[in-house]
Computed example of a mutant assay.
Amino acid sequence: MQYRFITIEGNIGAGKTTLALKLAEHLQAKLILEEFADNPFLPKFYAEPEQYAFPLELFFMAERYKQLKEMLGTRDLFSTHTVSDYLFIKSLLFAKMNLKEDEFSLYQKLFDIINPQLAQPDLLIYLHAPVSKLQQNIKKRNRSYEQQIPDSYLANVQDMYSQFIRQHPVRTLLIDTTKMDFLHRPEDFQTLLAALETDYPLGITYL
């Protein structure tokens, strides 16, 4: 398979980590999972977003950069593939949505300094799900600090990602998760594996 570095993205509760785990296991790939639970500002942000947005986003950016730099900079002799459950640029996307204008201006300057130092994925798998399905998944996994996320916030995240993948030349495989279930339907996972053998152009391809 030609895609050596695959990143899976999507809204909160879209199933990114579930698919990343399954795909990495099948490919015997190096796995990079976002360590969001280590962010001490996350529960505070959901309770008081205006007060904690800036430290939240700075912490995320620093931790994502450190993890990707370490993981992508070390060659694994027994693995030729890498699967990640986040894009580094999500730091900038969420910051633009959550920060005030002056805070975002400073944040973007820092992002622009470190982003060129990181390898970019060969393929982005974007998992799309309606807000109602996202809320079902969020309730099912039962993280206490996520239970009060409003539909409006998830809708804003959805719009943010949609705008990004349409405006940037990223090789993207877009999957409607209401039609495919990689965890419970083996045939859907096989369809994805077959799709990964295709050479896609820059832009969006719908699976």
Rank of each mutant, 00 (worst) to 15 (best):
Leu173Arg: 15
Leu92Gln: 12
Arg171Asn: 00
Glu25Asp: 13
Gln190Val: 01
Arg171Gln: 12
Pro201His: 05
Gln117Phe: 11
Pro130Ala: 02
Phe60Glu: 06
His26Trp: 07
Arg4Ala: 06
Ile113Ala: 00
Pro55Phe: 00
Leu202Tyr: 11
Phe111Tyr: 15
Glu197Pro: 06
Phe59Ile: 01
Ile125Pro: 08
Met97Asn: 15
Val83Pro: 10
Thr172Val: 00
Tyr153Gln: 12
Met71Asn: 02
Asp38Val: 07
Leu183Arg: 07
Leu192Lys: 00
Lys69Leu: 05
Leu99His: 09
Ala129Leu: 09
Pro116Gly: 00
Ile149Cys: 05
Ile12Gln: 01
Arg166Ser: 13
Ala119Gly: 03
Ser79Met: 07
Lys140Arg: 08
Tyr200Phe: 04
Phe94His: 15
Pro116Asn: 00
Lys109Ile: 10
Lys90His: 11
Gln136His: 03
Tyr153Pro: 14
Val170Ser: 14
Gly10Phe: 07
Met61Thr: 04
Tyr65Met: 02
Ile165Met: 10
Ser84Tyr: 01
Leu193Gly: 00
Ile89Ala: 06
Ser84Glu: 09
Gln148Trp: 08
Pro169Met: 09
Tyr52Leu: 07
Phe36Asp: 14
Gln136Pro: 00
Asp112His: 15
Ala119Trp: 06
Leu202Trp: 01
Tyr126Cys: 13
Asp159His: 09
Phe182Asp: 02
Asn142Tyr: 03
Asn98Trp: 05
Lys16Val: 04
Leu72Val: 01
Arg4Cys: 02
Phe78His: 08
Lys96Val: 08
Leu106Gln: 12
Thr74Ala: 10
Leu123Asn: 01
Ile149Thr: 01
His128Arg: 11
Ala24His: 10
Ala194His: 13
Val83Cys: 12
Ala29Tyr: 15
Gly73His: 00
Gln135Val: 13
Asn98Ile: 04
Ala129Trp: 02
Glu63Thr: 08
Glu25Gln: 12
Leu202Asn: 06
Phe182Met: 07
Ile113Tyr: 03
Lys69Thr: 12
Leu124Ser: 03
Met61Ala: 08
Thr17Tyr: 13
Phe45Glu: 12
Phe189Arg: 01
Phe5Ala: 10
Tyr145Asp: 04
Phe164Ser: 02
